[in-house]
């Protein structure tokens, strides 16, 4: 870690873009690990869930029958890591027959607001997400 990063003098906007379903490939799990590691560097982190990436956030995942670890509970820990902006694209949900109600209830505690619980998931349209993407300094896509 460089000095100026420790000072908070050079905070960059990091976007991790998730486009893959959770268990068919290793991308989703690897992306989550990168996010957790990257969270140590005190940057301004956002996650986007686009295309099949929205399937990562479905509630009620139960992998007992397929012998793969269910890592969806880890998304609930992201708030502890100060990762509080999860952009979910509406169009991607709709194309897949899903609504926001099918997703996990993800929240974070706002330190600046007496630890009030606030939702981490931000539903955005494709156009709105384009604007969010344009504001980023670094984008990593998985």
């Amino acid at each position: 870690m460089s000095e100026d990063m420790e000072d908070g003098g050079d905070i960059k906007k990091f976007m991790y873009m998730n486009r893959k379903a959770p268990y068919g490939t290793i991308y989703a799990l690897e992306a989550l690990e990168v996010v957790l590691i990257g969270a140590a560097f005190d940057q301004d982190v956002s996650l986007a869930f686009v295309d099949d990436g929205v399937f990562q956030l479905t509630k009620g995942q139960d992998t007992a029958g397929i012998g793969i670890k269910n890592f969806s509970p880890a998304f609930k820990a992201l708030g502890d890591y100060d990762v509080t902006k999860l952009y979910v694209e509406k169009e991607s949900l709709e194309e897949r027959g899903l609504t926001a109600d099918d997703l996990m209830d993800l929240v974070y505690e706002d330190e600046d607001d007496d630890w009030a619980e606030k939702p981490s998931i931000r539903l955005v349209s494709r156009d709105e997400l384009k604007t969010v993407l344009a504001e980023q300094d670094v984008i990593m896509s998985f």
Binding site: A21, Y23, T58, G60, Q61, D62, T63, G65, S72, D102
Partner: peptide, 14 residues
């Protein structure tokens, strides 16, 4: 396959 649906949180009513 039901176990793959369950793993992915897709309930049978969907």
């Amino acid at each position: 396959l039901g176990v793959d649906l369950a793993a992915r949180g897709i309930s049978e009513d969907k």
